[in-house]
């Protein structure tokens, strides 16, 4: 009984740590970065991009087959590139978390699912959500211990 209690408290502590600690993590100093993203139906290569908060980023969108685009969630930025005409966009990654980027030029059937992911800093969106989920379930088990151990 006692060990079950300790387990739940540890779970709560772990969850809260996961939710909150990444915000205090020592951020790497901002740098200039250039990413070349190759777009072809229906994928970006690379599909995932990792940055640090404050980085000055240039995205180079290179279309490999037909006209594609890129819309970055959260930053509300967009780009369009024809094959042979690389499109460039520079911005400062000043919002932490993970953001989807999506093709914004209809490029065939699977176009709505042509999606990539840009993560700024540690993936706050995920660590916060996962930490909160674990904490929530720990609190739930603390509140309803009897039912749980029936």
């Amino acid at each position: 009984m006692k060990s079950a209690m300790i387990f739940r408290l540890l779970m709560l502590a772990g969850g809260l740590a996961l939710a909150l600690l990444p915000s205090f993590a020592q951020a790497a100093p901002p740098v200039e970065r250039v990413f070349r993203i190759e777009a072809s139906s229906f994928a970006y290569k690379p599909g995932q991009i990792q940055l640090n908060l404050g980085d000055r980023v240039t995205l180079e969108l290179v279309s490999m087959d037909v006209v594609h685009g890129l819309y970055l969630d959260g930053y509300d930025l967009s780009l369009t590139a024809d094959p042979g005409q690389t499109a460039r966009l520079t911005f400062v990654a000043d919002r932490a978390g993970s953001f989807r980027f999506r093709c914004n030029v209809t490029c065939g059937a699977m176009h709505p699912f042509m999606i990539g992911k840009l993560t700024v800093g540690p993936n706050h969106s995920f660590t916060l959500a996962a930490g909160l989920t674990i904490s929530a379930i720990a609190i739930f088990l603390l509140i309803h211990p009897r039912r749980a151990s029936q």
């Binding site: 819309y71 969630d73 959260g74 509300d76 978390g97 993970s98 953001f99 989807r100 999506r102 969106s125 916060l128 959500a129 909160l132 989920t133 929530a136 379930i137 739930f140």
Partner: peptide, 20 residues
């Protein structure tokens, strides 16, 4: 795209609610 800033928090809340 609409409410892209709200999407992650909303999905998190929904999934936590489902979990509980």
């Amino acid at each position: 795209p609409l409410f892209t800033g709200l999407l992650a928090p909303l999905q998190t809340l929904v999934l936590i609610a489902g979990m509980l």
